[in-house]
Structures are given as structure tokens and as C-alpha cells.
Amino acid sequence: MSKFLRKFDFLQVILILSLALLYIPIIVMVVGSFNASQLANHWTGFTLEWFVKLFNDRRVLEAALLSVEIAFLASTISVILGTLIGISLVRVPRFFGRLLLTTMITAPLVMPDVITGLCQALLFNQTRVLFGWPTQGGFVTILLAHITFTMAYAAVTIQSRMLTVDRSLEDAAMDLGAGPVRAFVEITLPIIAPALFSSWLLGLTLSLDDVVIASFVTGPGATTLPMTIYSKVKLGVSPDMNALATIILAIVGAGVIISNIIMVRAEKQRQLDESKAMAEAH
């Protein structure tokens, strides 16, 4: 076997290929956002022109604001509903429709977005015919559609967290004098708070990301950010969208790095505390 082949064995080749597949498109996009040329494959010099253009584009800014509003509301409401569902499924052994809820709650997770979107659109058409509401698609219809699918994610996440919470913690709180509601709020809720937060973040991301479902249920005047990006890029390459993507990438990247640092620190501290406790015990 040649030296070259031994150095780059099979696994390393796979690794490099995977990384290339993941990151080359992103690099191309980031580079494009700073390229003075309109054409992505032709570098003519560094510029911030596209970023300036982006911040002067009212349509994009309005769409971004709408997206954030919808994402914020949808994820918040879906965490509240998801918590109720997760808790009922774990703590209430019997209620009407329990089996149906258990099996159907995961449906939006596996259903293709096109189908979900189509269903929602048909639903709103029907209610418009029957009740005269909603008069047209827009903020409310997108919000409702987003709640239905983010809620499923929240419910599943919170349910699985609830399964690992020791039931006797709430029992202990009640034994010590707390009523059931107080025991839940003071004991269970703080324990599952990280799961609530992560499902809130998940809902936020899913809602911000969605273009398919929103397209089906929206109407005149309500365009979310992903819909704007999609419609702009559809008409041809537009470097200001590269700039927008670069900004989003920077925000997400910073978030991931910071949360990783925090998690690693917390884990180290926990291990240190535990070994300290063990050492003192003997």
C-alpha cells in the first residue's frame, strides 16, 4: 500500500467529503454576500453594498418582523399546549380520547409539510364558507397553522422529559404540605424547565424556517421572511439575500458556540462537585 493511501484511509476520505458537502455551499454563499459582482461565480472585489441594500429594503424588514412575531407567538403558545398534553399523557392514566391523542399527537411530525399546508388551507376555506372566517389568509392563519405543527414537537419533547421525572418528587412536596398545583409549579416545573425552553426554541426555529405551510395559508399582504427569500431567489440570484443569510448564519453560529461553552463548563463543574462529594463521604 502506498504511503499516500495509508495516510488518507477510508474514514478520513468520508469525513472530508461529508464536511465538504456540508460547508462548501455555505462558504460559497458567505463569499457571495461580500462579492461586488452580481454573479456568484465571478469575484470582482470586496463590498458591503448588499448589506446596505438589505437594510434599506422595507419589504425584507417587514417580512422579518412578521416572521419573528409569528414564531414568537406560535412557539410560546405551543409550549403551553404541549406542556398540558405532555403532562396529561404521563400523569393522567385514563381520560376520554387518551389513546387517540397518544397516537395522533405525532402525526404532524411525520406528515409532509405540503400535506399539512394543504389541509390547513382547505380547513380555512371551509370555515370561510361556513362561518365567514377568516375573510382572508394572513397573520392569524399562519399563526394557527404554525401552532398546530410546533405544538406536536413541544408535546413530544415535554412528554419524554416528564417520563424521566421521579413521581415521588411531587408526592414529597404534597407530603410536606403543598397542594397539587403548588407542588407542580414549585417542583415539577423548574425540573422540566430546560425541556420547556428547548421545545420553545425548537418551535421558534421550525416556525422561522417554514415556507411551505405558510405559503398555503397566507393571503395578500402577509409574507414571512422565508417566503420573501424564496420568491426573490426564484427570480434569479440576488446577493442581498446572501447577505441576509450570512447575518442569520452569524447569529445562529454565535448562539451554538456560546451554548456549547456554557454546557461544557456546567458539565465540568458538575463532575467536580460530584467527585468532591464522593471524596468527603469517605
Binding site: S168, A172, D175
Partner: peptide, 13 residues
């Protein structure tokens, strides 16, 4: 009455 639980059920937070 008060109870000491088998798992101790100490509030982790």
C-alpha cells in the same frame, strides 16, 4: 404524617 421516600425524592433544584 411525613414520609421519607425510598428514592429520597430530594428536590434537585
Amino acid at each position: 404524617v411525613n414520609m421519607m421516600f425510598q428514592s429520597y425524592a430530594l428536590f434537585p433544584h
